[in-house]
């Protein structure tokens, strides 16, 4: 250990924990609220242009391709703070010990910080929910003895994690390796132009969903996956079930707020309609909610088919996805005309 150590003292910085649907938008929203900038999770997610759809067959997880319903990790924090003119302080570390010391140092100075970790080594996660995902985000607000006091955005209560486990979680190697990433808002402007940020964000998201040049992103990506599901080889039932289960997990289980972030985004549109004084947006939010319900029905059918509680029917699932694609395309076009 190094010279300046404050580890003997317990530290607890008062912090208001609020459970969120998604780790990254939850962590940054609660850090900003702690810095007296009141912002909801849906607002943070929407302004960062977090919503997306991507089918990435070249990134394999357990041999299965990646299906993403949002932009890559890091986009929420970077996108949100850039659009609002907030300056973030980021630190990464080569040496795990240096990273832990820096964390202690920030806590000692009374600073609550967000950190990136792997979800697998966090001991407070229920065992069945622990998977190797390196871009989990959480907030550390204190230290008691050898335990860190943690406000994990996706967990309903405050939790603690032992220093060794937290160190391991912060310094896993591999894809999206956190490298001990630690962050906090360093500067928040007095005046924030929320309406302008919202308009920009919606234009970016709708543009990306509608006019992507590659067939694996946005609405085209949804259609591609629909065609893939329709053409699945009926003889490889076990493999197909794993694939469908994987899709449903990416859509529902991995902290999306339901329907692969569609409900979160609908909530954002509803809030935005008040800020922009455009009641039309609230109507569009309702339409997006209906699409979200269709995504949920797709998930339920796919899951039941995996478990043989429903006869396997790739055509039905493909039709549902096609329906989602068409409805979303319509919604994004409407949004663009509203914000002309």
């Amino acid at each position: 250990m190094n010279a300046f150590v404050h580890t003997s003292d317990d530290i607890e910085i008062p912090f208001a924990h609020q459970q969120s649907a998604h780790c990254e938008s939850g962590a940054i929203a609660s850090l900003l609220r702690h810095a007296k900038l009141s912002i909801s999770e849906p607002m943070a997610f929407g302004i960062s242009s977090g919503l997306s759809y991507a089918y990435l067959p070249f990134l394999k997880f357990g041999g299965l391709p990646l299906f993403a319903y949002r932009m890559p990790p890091g986009q929420v924090i970077r996108g949100l703070t850039k659009r609002l003119g907030i300056k973030m302080h980021f630190e990464r570390f080569r040496q795990p010990d240096a990273g832990m010391l820096a964390l202690d140092h920030h806590l000692y100075e009374g600073r609550v910080v967000g950190i990136q970790t792997s979800a697998y080594w966090l001991t407070y996660f229920p065992p069945d929910m622990r998977f190797h995902f390196n871009a989990h985000n959480l907030v550390v607000y204190g230290r008691r003895g050898n335990n860190y006091l943690i406000s994990d955005p996706v967990i309903d209560i405050l939790v603690e994690c032992e220093a060794g486990a937290l160190k391991k979680a912060r310094f896993t190697r591999g894809v999206l390796a956190p490298k001990g990433l630690l962050y906090y808002p360093a500067f928040i402007p007095e005046q924030i132009d929320l309406p302008a940020a919202i308009r920009k964000a919606i234009r970016f998201t709708t543009g990306m969903m509608l006019y992507t040049p590659v067939p694996i992103l946005g609405v085209r990506g949804i259609r591609l996956v629909s065609r893939k599901i329709r053409k699945l080889d009926t003889r490889k039932q076990h493999q197909n079930k794993l694939l469908l289960g994987h899709i449903v997990r990416m859509q529902e289980e991995i902290g999306t707020g339901g329907a692969g972030f569609r409900f979160l985004y609908a909530s954002f549109l509803q809030e935005a309609s008040g800020v922009l004084r455009k009641p039309e947006l609230a109507g569009i939010a309702n339409q997006l909610t209906e699409v979200g319900d269709e995504w949920r029905r797709f998930a339920l059918h796919a899951a039941k088919m995996c478990k043989d509680r429903m006869p396997m029917d790739y055509g039905l699932l493909a039709d549902q996805l096609m329906h989602c694609a068409t409805a979303e395309e319509n919604i994004y076009r409407l949004l663009r005309t509203e914000l002309k």
Binding site: A21, V154, D156, F263, A266, S267, Q270, E271, L300
Partner: peptide, 26 residues
């Protein structure tokens, strides 16, 4: 876990869920 859902007036609210059949299966 937290989901977002609409209340009786159609306003979006934070809505905790204790589990869902589809998620449990997969």
């Amino acid at each position: 876990k937290l989901l977002y859902a609409q209340d009786e007036q159609g306003n979006y609210v934070r809505a905790p869920s204790s589990g869902w059949e589809a998620e449990e299966i997969v």
